[in-house]
């Protein structure tokens, strides 16, 4: 409760933040009632990428352990929906998918978070590849199918589901960022040895945070696949889904929770537009990405933030932690 007050009430900025999230949520709730059929689906995809991106940033952005396992958790959510989606309401499947991703994330975390740096990244990269191969093998040997049909739900319903997952994830991350748990993650990212020696249980913190950051990916996977109606291992566990959150976070700026959201929105809109209008999607996209990394090392949100900071404080540069 003290935490909720601190993040959403105590200062003027906190109140603005709370109001903005609430207003956005309420506004989004009404979108399907006046828009056509396409906007809710489009927005559901945007929010899916936002969710993947902020949850990735929560763990990897803070700790510096670059995870490429997003595709694994995202895909597990999809497959769970395919397998049990007919028996349960959408909300229940989404919740179970989040729990599954959390559980797998916790297990993987226990094994891998002893690894540091690039070795952790390689292992998580391998995890999605492994699951892809594993499901191919399983389907080839046991079910003798390629892929499965997934029960489809109304686009509006999926939109509401993803909206709720996204808002819950966002609020949870904003709260965790200011909590002891979030601060201990920041300490780990800043200097793991020091963090350990001032009393942070680094292993538990890392494993728990990794599992928490996996859960939303499972949830949105379960929701979104029901707009597609079909899933197979190559669709569920495609490596691009692991790279997108990373690129979006870099694109938008990693040091703030809102950076990855800005990144994900621009990224998805750009992708959608380019895919519909040209064949040069990858070329243009790659160029934009390179320019952003070279010119704006702190991402688009970093640029906006340092402009505001310059105006307010007379210098640019921010100190994390107590801002």
């Amino acid at each position: 409760m003290e935490l909720v007050k601190k993040v959403f009430w105590e200062t003027k900025a906190a109140k603005i933040q709370a109001l903005a999230i609430l207003a956005a949520f309420v506004f989004m709730m009404f979108i399907p009632s006046f828009s056509g059929a396409y906007p809710p689906l489009f927005l559901a995809w945007v929010m899916t990428y936002c969710t993947l991106s902020i949850s990735w940033t929560f763990f990897s952005g803070k700790t510096g352990y670059i995870s490429l396992a997003t595709a694994a958790f995202y895909g597990l959510g999809m497959y769970l929906q395919a397998v049990i989606g007919r028996e349960f309401p959408l909300g229940v499947t989404i919740l179970l998918a989040a729990l599954l991703a959390f559980g797998v994330g916790f297990g993987i975390g226990l094994i891998t978070l002893r690894l540091r740096g690039i070795y952790f990244t390689i292992f998580t990269f391998g995890l999605a590849l492994f699951l892809n191969r594993f499901f191919h093998w399983y389907e080839g040997v046991f079910t003798r199918t390629k892929g499965r049909f997934v029960k489809t739900f109304d686009n509006d319903m999926v939109f509401y589901a993803v909206l709720i997952v996204f808002i819950v994830t966002l609020v949870a991350i904003l709260l965790m960022n200011k909590s002891r748990f979030g601060l201990s993650l920041t300490c780990i990212g800043q200097n793991e040895d020091s963090a350990q020696h001032i009393g942070v249980n680094t292993t538990l913190t890392k494993v728990l945070a990794f599992a928490i950051s996996a859960a939303p990916a499972g949830a949105v996977g379960a929701a979104m696949i029901s707009t597609v109606g079909y899933v197979d291992p190559d669709l569920a566990f495609r490596m691009l889904a692991s790279f997108f959150p990373v690129l979006m976070a870099i694109f938008g700026g990693m040091f703030s929770t809102y950076g990855p959201i800005v990144g994900a929105v621009i990224f998805y809109v750009l992708q959608d537009y380019l895919l519909r209008t040209t064949n040069l999607y990858m070329v243009i996209f790659g160029t934009v990405m390179v320019v952003v990394v070279l010119v704006l090392p702190k991402g688009i949100f970093g640029l906006i933030d340092s402009m505001i900071a310059k105006k307010q404080r007379g210098y640019s540069g921010e100190v994390i932690g107590d801002v």
Partner: peptide, 10 residues
């Protein structure tokens, strides 16, 4: 081994 991006007080 300080936390480089935090202020001294943090």
């Amino acid at each position: 081994k300080n936390f480089p991006d935090m202020s001294m007080r943090e």
